[in-house]
Simulated scan of single mutants.
Amino acid sequence: MDITGNTIFIPGSTSGIGLALALAFQERGNQVIVGGRRTAELERIAAAHPGLDTVRIDTADPASIAAAAAEVLDRHPDLNALIAMAGIMRAEDWRRPEGFLASAEATVTTNVLGPIRLIGAFVEHFQTRPDATIMTVSSGLAFTPLRATPSYNASKAAIHMLSESLRLQLEGTSVRVVELVPPSVRTELMPGHSEDPHALPLDEYVAEVMGLVESQPDAKEIQVERVKFLRYGEARGDYDQVVAALNGNERANR
């Protein structure tokens, strides 16, 4: 993916990694469209950051995705990049059905069906562009499970394999599939997570991501150093130790 000169739609970018990436891409000369559910928050972001466009979208709602896609393409027919950022992460207790079922269903709807529907809304258009990028967002937890979040882990593993498969299907077209693989980052993805001393500071994470995008324009996965501990445990042969470290509240993201 080129670092500049794109028109990028980022659903789920009113806070956290999504908003930080939106601002970083804008600073590098890209037209960025921020997507989110809360109209007031979108208005605040647009006022604070002139030049950013905003579109209301609920990625758990197929009709909202379809309407937002039509709005984005009407206003930005040169759109050539999608970063499917929206996601939820919830602790679950699978020992009791009432402890996980509603959360699991919501997680799959947002984290798996949301990106699938988003890609479905734009993939035909992207194939008409000379150079286009679909960026999916998985997680280090797609490769090493966190005990507390079974559905989140599974949803991100699904996104990893979806990315791998789409890359094969779109080979020979103008569309690249790039997978962003975050480690634990200090955001409000879960309560208290923004204060986690073991998580990577948001500004450090985004700076490293942008450096990788610039230096590795043909990368299939964007992996900061911190996530490789989780990403490659099985390949290194220390998977069991990585799982134990992550779930023993040790410093796993080293």
Rank of each mutant, 00 (worst) to 15 (best):
P201K: 07
E188Q: 14
D196F: 06
S174H: 06
V175K: 07
V185N: 07
E195S: 14
V209E: 02
R186D: 08
V175Q: 08
E204G: 05
L202V: 09
V213M: 08
R186Q: 15
P182F: 03
E171W: 06
L202A: 11
Y205F: 15
D218T: 12
P182G: 06
M190K: 13
L212F: 04
L180H: 02
V206N: 02
D196E: 14
E204C: 01
L180W: 04
L166N: 09
V213C: 06
V185Y: 05
P191D: 13
Q169W: 04
A207T: 09
L189D: 10
L200C: 11
S194E: 15
R167I: 09
E214A: 15
M210V: 05
E179H: 02
G192M: 12
L166I: 06
L180P: 00
G211Y: 01
Q216S: 13
S194L: 10
E179F: 02
V177N: 04
V185T: 08
V206E: 01
Q216M: 13
L168P: 01
P201N: 07
T173L: 06
E208M: 00
V178L: 02
E171M: 10
S194Q: 14
Q169H: 14
L200I: 15
L189K: 09
A219R: 08
V178S: 02
L170F: 10
L202S: 11
L202I: 08
V213H: 03
T187Q: 11
V206A: 01
L180T: 00
H193W: 12
V185A: 08
M210K: 00
L212K: 14
M190D: 09
Q169L: 11
D196I: 08
Y205K: 07
E179G: 03
E204N: 06
L168K: 13
A207R: 06
P217L: 07
